[in-house]
């Protein structure tokens, strides 16, 4: 398993280098499954590899490159984060046509400030709840970071609808909206997006409609092994 994680971390690093990056795995990762994720926005690029240790416990390593607006957006500060994460499934609730989950996740992080050249350490913790059927997907999550005397919070709400109930061999198409509120940002990011989903991969793509400083393209990628 160590070898598998090492190999997967290498793949994740490659994703970070070649494309732009991956996301945070708050969600359920089945036992013995490796998941590689990437997310790209103008503000954040992440690459993450996660592994399901048991039905309820997964772990991941994430590499995050973050750009924060300084002085009203005239300058940008680049921070590179390496985050280890453990996720625990608190609740799994099945209904005849759907399934709901609640997770807690968190772990240590190291933050390197590109301009200052120094590295600081901190922690991050999050809560994630989702419910899905073959027609709808809803998610609420909150992620808090504490490092270098900084406190960052991100709250995300997502809602998606499927125009048709895809079966296992089909490519599922979803349309939805993501609402994201970050600490230090006065405006709520509203991002309509599309998701294409198949057995072992999905891709999200959307554009924020009211980003403060720029149109915010959002691309998310996931693949399982």
């Amino acid at each position: 398993m160590t070898a598998a994680l090492t190999a997967a971390a290498g793949v994740a690093s490659g994703v970070l280098t070649l494309a732009p990056g991956a996301a945070h795995a708050g969600f359920f990762i089945p036992k013995d499954i490796i998941m590689v994720m990437g997310t790209w926005t103008p503000d954040e690029r992440t690459a993450e590899v996660a592994y399901g240790f048991t039905r309820d416990v997964s772990g991941s390593i994430a590499f995050v490159r973050r750009f924060d607006d300084l002085h009203g957006g005239r300058n940008r500060e680049r921070t590179d984060l390496v985050m280890a994460q453990g996720a625990h499934l608190l609740l799994r609730h099945r209904t005849p046509g759907g399934i709901g989950n609640a997770y807690v996740y968190g772990g240590p992080l190291a933050a390197r400030f590109a301009d200052r050249g120094d590295t600081r350490y901190g922690v991050h913790v999050g809560l994630w709840a989702d419910y899905e059927t073959r027609w709808i997907y809803t998610r609420a999550s909150h992620h808090a970071y504490r490092y270098a005397g900084r406190s960052r919070n991100e709250t995300v709400l997502q809602g998606m609808l499927a125009p048709y109930a895809a079966d296992y061999d089909d490519i599922a198409s979803w349309g939805g909206v993501q609402l994201k509120k970050k600490s230090g940002q006065s405006q709520l990011e509203v991002t309509p997006y599309l998701r294409f989903f198949s057995k072992r991969w999905w891709v999200d793509a959307g554009v924020s409609v009211n980003r403060q400083n720029r149109n915010d393209l959002f691309i998310n990628f996931m693949h399982t092994f």
Partner: peptide, 16 residues
């Protein structure tokens, strides 16, 4: 299988 609505989770079952 009860509650199997997600292709991602079903994919892990197929793999097993």
């Amino acid at each position: 299988v009860d509650g199997m609505v997600c292709a991602f989770c079903a994919g892990s079952i197929e793999k097993k």
